[in-house]
Design a protein around this nucleic acid. Structure first.
Lengths: 166, 166
DNA sequence: TTGTTGGTTCAGTACTTTTTGAAACTTCCT
DNA sequence: AGGAAGTTTCAAAAAGTACTGAACCAACAA
């Protein structure tokens, strides 16, 4: 396989993977492109490489920065902005966990709390409250487990955890 | 909050959560409805409750069974099929991990392997191979960690792991 | 065999999300 | 102030995804 083919295949696959993770195709492709790029790239270069419009590039780069997966890099002398990807996979995953926890798990916990206030004025209501209570319990565990996971470092993940768990 | 409001809110929120997890809104809503239903429900009842068409109900129920989140229940005497949700949250999460691992992580591992065969015939190619190697290493770790996680049981998750990690 | 109940399929439609491209804005230089 | 280089925004269009409803299939009962 040639380098060009390999790069294309990687960008394409990373894009597909992203789609099923709430990260849109283009966003994931930009991330992939930056991941395998030894140099920081400008918006122009990204547009060119992925054949996308300026607006699209701009919005998705912004979103990537927002997720903490890409950094802006200002080269001295250049007025243009350049972008680099976070290349430590553990950092990437950690940032995704942080964002999704904030965007999805936390709102759900709030909803579960609200819902718990249903009047237990019937057999059915009691059963409902009990099921919600169990879901809440589980979600809270997941929440604090993720917190701990995010605080731990890469070495812990690749080393200790694997041994501990085996 | 009344029981009716609570149920609606839960179904609605679970649906929204699903959307960001590659599980479509209706599928997640059916799952929510079954989760909070003490009785198994028929397709008719689900259609009625969520105001969806027969085709939609059928396809999504089947997908849920496919994901291992819902079971078919045949009541003796009744020709109709009834459905119940898996109510153990740990089982639910485990099944989702299993499915997504199979659908997303494993194909990505295969692609990474293919890509590794790029000719290291330039500085750039060597850097590319190295980055891919790191991603592969990380993905393999994630893969086996998830395997172990899935094999472990609920008690381990809610008990030991939490203490261990603190 | 015919009618009834329930399940499945899928082409067309409706809805949602993403992308484009052009205009507006910002910064800096002369 | 005017202009060049770059970035941001957003309405409209395109692409992608989900849903409907009607036709079809299967099992059973009369």
């Amino acid at each position: 396989m040639t380098l060009k083919e390999g790069k294309e295949k990687f960008i394409q696959s990373w894009g597909a993977l992203g789609s099923s993770w709430g990260i849109n195709r283009t966003m994931a492709q930009i991330h992939a492109l930056l991941l395998i790029s030894p140099e920081a790239l400008s918006a122009e270069e990204i547009m060119e490489e992925l054949q996308i419009s300026r607006g699209n590039a701009n919005m998705n780069i912004r979103a990537l920065i927002d997720w903490g997966l890409v950094y802006k890099e200002l080269k001295p002398g250049e007025r243009k902005e350049f972008f680099v990807a976070e290349k430590d996979m553990w950092e990437v995953v950690k940032n995704i966990i942080i964002q999704r926890k904030k965007r999805e798990l936390e709102p759900m916990l709030r909803v579960l709390d609200e819902i718990s206030s249903v009047d237990p004025d019937s057999e059915e209501a009691e059963e409902f409250i009990e099921i919600i209570r169990e879901i809440k319990l589980f979600s809270n565990k997941a929440d604090s487990t993720l917190d701990t996971l995010v605080k731990s470092d890469s070495n812990w993940f690749v080393g200790t955890f694997m041994k501990m768990i085996k």
